[in-house]
Every structure is written in structure tokens, then in C-alpha cells.
Write a protein that binds this DNA or RNA. Structure first.
Lengths: 332, 332
DNA sequence: TTGAAAGCGGTACCAG
DNA sequence: CTGGTACCGCTTTCAA
């Protein structure tokens, strides 16, 4: 079914059909209703491929994320979608599962689709791809990596600051043996976060620390923690790279027979909704996903609806949220 | 940038460029490499809008779900994506947030995109839309609602059976006062599930029961449970419509000062990954999302890669998974 | 092995 | 207000 069919049945030209469907140009009321009736009768749906090709624009943004299963990424998507929807854009998503190859193929696919802007909310990176993106002129915003330039904007969380708040807080509770549980991806924002932990602990010479890594998610957190608790190092507090992993950390700690926070404190990062439903509710670092989603949209689409030009830089300063998974060190 | 540009720079025709990019037709080795070099040099990406328009096919499936934040839906998406990818398809997703209006607009958008098949994994329904879909001839598969016919297949979970297993199990532990916590959407699969609860409890005349509803997710489960515990009815076991809500149920029970399972048993439904990380780990009904994802793909795309024709029916018989959130009733 | 040209289903400009 | 028509960028015969 094509606009021609509608045109014939409604005894008008395709141009007119196009006009009524796009509410562009003037059309006599009677012809408009006639066309619309035929459209309804025939159950016609415009071919958006043709439409976008002809118009040369595609009001669609792309977002590629490392792991949409992690509510952190998902929340950003939801927020971005809502901003986008409000301005007549839709957003196409792709998951990379932390694989660089999927990152590349997803991005290529999106470029092929002629999206109006691209959000890279991924932990992993790919230098060649980034270069390609810079060349392309496509508005791009990347979270947690790289530097703003030309068409690419960046949004970063101040991990150093967040980590400092956590460690200072734990120190105030008397903790001196800290463990950091993080992803095993030694790139992008995961790396930043790990560096932040190392940097901050260095400033507290009395603190002993260790790092243990595994996959993202509860299972990853659980595995890493099992490993940690079996290692001989006996932390009084575990700092998790994100809340989603922390869920697994809590489980592993419990299964080891340790009570939280009486015998071991645990902190998360991101303040996802689930962190409040953890047991006990997680002390964490709040990273405002809503705000990030809005920033992404702003970075990609200018006020006037045109594509954004200059590369902008956004920095997020996260806050500490104290709940029940942390407490003072008790003498053994 | 267009294929014309490549053609000019490589001193060939656009037809040839098309041939090498699609590996269709024969091309002399030397020209092929020349074209590919130019493509790389110029960082050219095919315009997929034009390509799909010209080819008249779009190897892309659509999935619209009620709430991708609920890991149940998300797992189905992941599974479908993996099946699709293996056969050269991609999948476009849309979220409806349980709103019928979003359902309709998302589906229309997908039809406009000329997707090859559509999966409706949504709780809510819309009669007019379903009718429209039947007319369209587009391969459709719907989860948890409607009946197979023509181009539409259905996948259903045998809620009755699952519910029977749960109630029988709880009865064997001595429970006689049961509460069912579910979504407040009185349509589609949510309705089926509620009916299943009502039907099954009717078969156990000694059982007292009540139903309380709220939004999906932990907050919904929490709210509903607060309401329940304040109502005066004092259940010995709470059956949650899904694990994601159950997370909130557990929290509300805990915050009410009741211990699970000693003072109150809780069950979930779906067996999402998180159910194992709940505190205590949830007794639940396993609904195999992987299998559902594969079924969806099978229902949409035939073996030979053609569109599927006949409407098929799949029925899933879920299993009980006993963990630590349920226990025998203790004398008060 | 390659090129020319007719679509694919729309949009948008120009006449009338 | 409405119709005719030249594209949009790519695929696919048909000839050469």
C-alpha cells in the first residue's frame, strides 16, 4: 500500500495526500476529510523509510549502552526518551554487552540509519571509532570518556569527588581496611572509577585497601566478593562500583555468614531504585540519571531543533546517600 | 556522502559500488579493492533508509513491551535479540509504560518502518489495534493475550497451572490465609493471572484470600503490601504477581516488623535473576524467558527466512522453584 | 565485468 | 487549493 493508492481512491494527487498527512500546506477541508477517510478505510501507514529519505532528516536519536540490564543505564534511556518524545524525536537503542565489536557494529548501524545524534553511554571504548565519529560531524555525546571537541560533547561524573565522600565517611566510622569491587573492564569510565579509588585511598595512608573485579551485575558482585573473602584480606567495608553489583556483594557477604553493617559495611554507587530495596538498604552515591538523560538530549539537539554544533562538557558532582548498609566498626 | 561520491572517486558506476557493498553480482577483484579503499578513505556508510526502501525489505523485528524496566521483559528482549542477530535481523524496541496510547503509537511507528514482524509483549491491549494488525498481514506474535489466527501467533504462560502449584505448595505448609499482590491493570495477562488466583483458591474452600493491586515494580509491591497489612486481613502468605513487585513486598513486610518466612511467607513469579538475590531468596514460579524469546523469533520468521504465515500457539508450563522466602506456618 | 536507467514511496517546488 | 514532477540514495534488471 502506497500513497498513490490513497491518491487514486480519493481522487487527488499524491502531493495532496502528502500535504494532509503532514499537515503542511493548505488543503480544502472537504478534500482533507476525504483523504483521511480513505486512509482509515484502507488502513494505510506511511512508509517512514521513504519519508525520511525524501525529507533528508530523521528525527531519531541513537543511544548505545554497555548493559541495559543495569538499571543505571536503563534509567538514562528512559529519561532521554522522555526528553526526546517531548520534542518529537524517538530514540533507537542498542546494547553492547561490554563488547567493543558490538559497539562498533551498533554505531555503524545507527549512522546508516542517519540518526540525528548519537549517545554513547558505554564503558568500553574504541579509539578508531571515536576518530571516525569526530570526522563524521554527527552530534555525539559520550558519557564517562574522552574529551569534548568539535561535534562531540562529554558528560562525566566526578568519580574522584564521589569516592572521596565515601572514603571520608567510612573513615569517620572507623574503617581502615577497604575493598573495592568493580567491573573487570579496564577501560573507559570503569577505569576512571578504579583510579579514583586508588587515588583517594592514597590520601589516607592509614588505610589498607584492595581491588577485586568481575562482571557487571549481581552475579559479578557476588563472585568478586567470594573471591575477596577467600583471599585472606579481611575488609571492614566494601565499596562497590555500582549498586547493581552491590546487590550481589550483599548476598555474598550474607552467605559468608557476616552481618551487614554490624560486621561488614557495604556501599554502592548510582542510587538506583533497587538500592533502596536491597537488604539492608544501600548507602550509596547518587548519580542523577534523569539529569544525565536531559543533558544527553541537550547536547544532541539544540534549542531550535537543529543539530547541536559545539562540543560541550557536563560534569556531575554526585552526593552521598547514607542508608543502612554502613555502620561503625566494632571491636572484634 | 552517497554512493555516487564513492563511484566518482573510484571511477566506477553506482551500480558497481552497490555490488561490492552487497557482495552481490560479480566484480573484478581489482575494482572491488579500489572501491573498498575509497569507502574506507571517505568513511562512507550506506544509507540504510534508501537501501531498505529500494530492496523493499527490512530485516528488522519490532518488540513492544509494557515495561522494560522489569527484568522479565528485558530478558525476553535479550533472548529475542540474540536469536534475531544470529539470522541477520535486528530488533527495534519500544516501551509502553502500560499505556494503551503508547502501545498504539509505537505499533504504528513500527509498521511505518516496515518491520518484518512484530512482537507484542505487553500486558495492556487494544481491540482496534489488534484488528488493524490482523488486517495488515504483518506477522505478529502476542504474549499473554488473544488467540492465534491468520498472521498472529500467541504465546501463553499457563498461569492456572503455575498458580495451582504455588497454592498447593503453600497449603502443604499449612497456609490458609493468602493474599495476592498484582498490577492494577485489569487487562490482558494481568487479568489472566488474577483470574487464575481466584479460580485456584476457589478449589480450596478452607482458604481465605484477598487481592490487592498497585503499579508494577518494587514501589508498587511495597505500596500494595502496606495497604494489605493495614487492611486488617492478616495473611500467612503473600503471592506476588511477579518477582519484581515481590522485591517491594519483601521490603514492606520487613518494614512492618515481620520476618520472612518465619512470620509470613512470600512468593514471586517469573524467576528473574534478581529473585535469587532477594533477601531472603524468593520462592517463585519459573517462566523461561529465553525460551519465550526464541519462540517469538520462530513465530515471526520462518525457517527459510521468509515471513511466517500461519498463526501458531505456544503454551508454557511453568515450574515451581522453592527457595527461602517460604516456610511452614508457625503457631502464633 | 560493468554502466545506464527504471523504480522504491515519499516530499516539495513550481505552475495553474 | 491542487497537480505535475524532479529528486532522496540505493538496488536491480537489461545491454553492452
Amino acid at each position: 500500500m502506497k500513497s498513490r493508492d490513497i491518491a487514486v481512491k480519493a481522487k487527488v494527487s499524491v502531493a495532496t495526500v502528502s500535504r494532509v498527512l503532514n499537515e503542511s500546506g493548505l488543503v480544502k477541508r472537504s478534500t482533507r476529510t476525504r483523504v483521511l477517510r480513505v486512509v482509515r478505510e484502507l488502513g494505510y501507514h506511511q512508509n517512514l523509510l521513504a519519508r525520511n529519505l525524501a525529507k533528508g532528516e530523521n528525527r531519531c536519536l541513537g543511544m548505545v549502552a554497555s548493559n541495559l540490564e543495569n538499571p543505571f543505564f536503563h534509567d538514562i534511556l528512559v529519561s532521554l526518551e522522555s526528553s526526546a518524545r517531548m520534542r518529537g524525536y524517538e530514540v533507537a537503542v542498542a546494547n553492547t554487552d561490554y563488547q567493543s565489536s558490538k559497539l562498533v557494529s551498533s554505531v555503524r548501524l545507527m549512522i546508516g540509519r542517519r540518526i540525528a545524534g548519537l549517545a554513547l553511554i558505554a564503558t568500553e571504548t574504541n579509539a578508531a571509532l571515536f576518530h571516525e565519529l569526530e570526522e563524521s560531524g554527527l552530534p555525539v555525546v559520550v558519557y564517562g570518556a574522552g574529551t569534548a571537541a568539535g561535534n562531540v560533547s562529554t558528560i562525566n561524573t566526578n568519580y574522584l569527588n564521589g569516592m572521596h565522600k565515601v572514603v571520608k565517611y567510612l573513615r569517620s566510622l572507623g574503617h581502615r581496611r577497604l575493598a573495592f569491587v568493580c567491573h573487570d573492564m579496564a577501560v573507559g569510565s570503569a577505569l576512571e572509577q578504579k583510579k579514583a579509588f586508588l587515588d583517594v585511598t592514597r590520601h589516607f595512608p592509614e588505610v589498607e585497601s584492595t581491588v577485586v573485579a568481575n562482571g557487571d551485575g549481581p552475579q559479578g558482585g557476588q563472585q568478586a566478593t567470594r573471591q575477596l573473602l577467600a583471599s585472606g584480606f579481611r575488609p571492614t567495608a566494601i565499596i562497590s562500583a555500582n549498586d547493581y553489583m552491590a546487590l550481589g556483594v550483599l548476598r555474598a557477604v550474607r552467605e559468608h555468614g557476616l552481618r551487614v553493617p554490624e560486621e561488614l559495611s557495604v556501599t554502592g554507587h548510582d542510587n538506583i531504585t533497587l538500592s533502596e530495596f536491597a537488604c539492608p538498604p544501600l548507602t550509596t552515591i547518587d548519580v542523577p540519571r534523569n539529569q544525565i538523560g536531559r543533558m544527553v538530549f541537550e547536547a544532541l539537539v539544540a534549542e531550535d531543533g537543529e543539530c547541536q554544533q559545539g562540543g560541550r562538557t557536563f560534569l556531575i558532582d554526585p552526593e552521598l546517600v547514607v542508608r543502612e548498609s554502613t555502620g561503625p566498626v566494632r571491636p572484634q
